[in-house]
Amino acid sequence: MLSSIVQALLNGLVSGTILAVPAIGFTAIFAVLRYPNFAIGSLATIGAYAGWYANVRLGWPLEASFALAFLGAGIAAVAAEWLAVRPLEKSGALMMAICSLAVGIVLENMVRFGFGNDPRGFNVPLMRDIRFGDLRISPQQVENFAVALLLMALLWVALNFTRMGRAMRATADNPELARLKGVEPATVAAITVVVGGGLAGVGGMLVALDTAADPLTGFRLILSVFAAAVLGGLGSIPGAVVGALLIGMVEELTVLLLAPNYRTAIGFVVILIVLTIRPSGLFGEKSG
């Protein structure tokens, strides 16, 4: 029994890491632009298709396909932000959130119009798991895990050691002050949206690698992404990572110890409990 619990936690760690990528994207956009971007699911779908197109149609290796997934979703995100959401800045965060919902509907159906509903599988060899005694781990998932970790590390470096990164953090902390210090909010917002949308895209491709790309790839993911971001505290990048890992592990333990069909539900019960104790999530801002 102990080994099966360890195995479930290990599985949760892997699925949580993949979940963390789009969750970081979602929370980063929230941190700087101050609204929950509900188009994140469709952005993940666009990333999955961009990656699939690069990998299968163009025959690119996975690394390059990840880059296209990032770019494709990032560009879609910034275009939608500029054309649809940003003009509503004065109407408040919730109007922007509703608008992003509409953007999500449009993007998902543009994908559907172009590619139809048939799932598109990637061209990657599937490997058997490596066994350590009772435990097993998939080399592929280790790779995905590594991609996710690498992205997080890159992001951490960018946020802490580049001028733009510092500007982003400053804007997230206090936009007024950041403006006074000479940070151009529009540029910061644009870059945040590209990075946030791009991360969602990579997350979509990571998921599609294991399933297939179809117009609902992102939609299936969003409940868990939202859950992870809220659990960690909206706007907190470390929070999104921890939240995603926790959600991943709680869901796998639910399968093992409770009922597999209540995976999503138990995740939300955990959120409710955590938020009752800490209303702003694990790493969220205290006041509010």
Binding site: F226, F268, V269, L275, P279
Partner: peptide, 20 residues
Amino acid sequence: STLRLRDDYLAIVTLGFAEV
């Protein structure tokens, strides 16, 4: 059960409620 939550948190928790 959601009294102390901020609006954006409430939005996502209620989304989860409907799924439950």
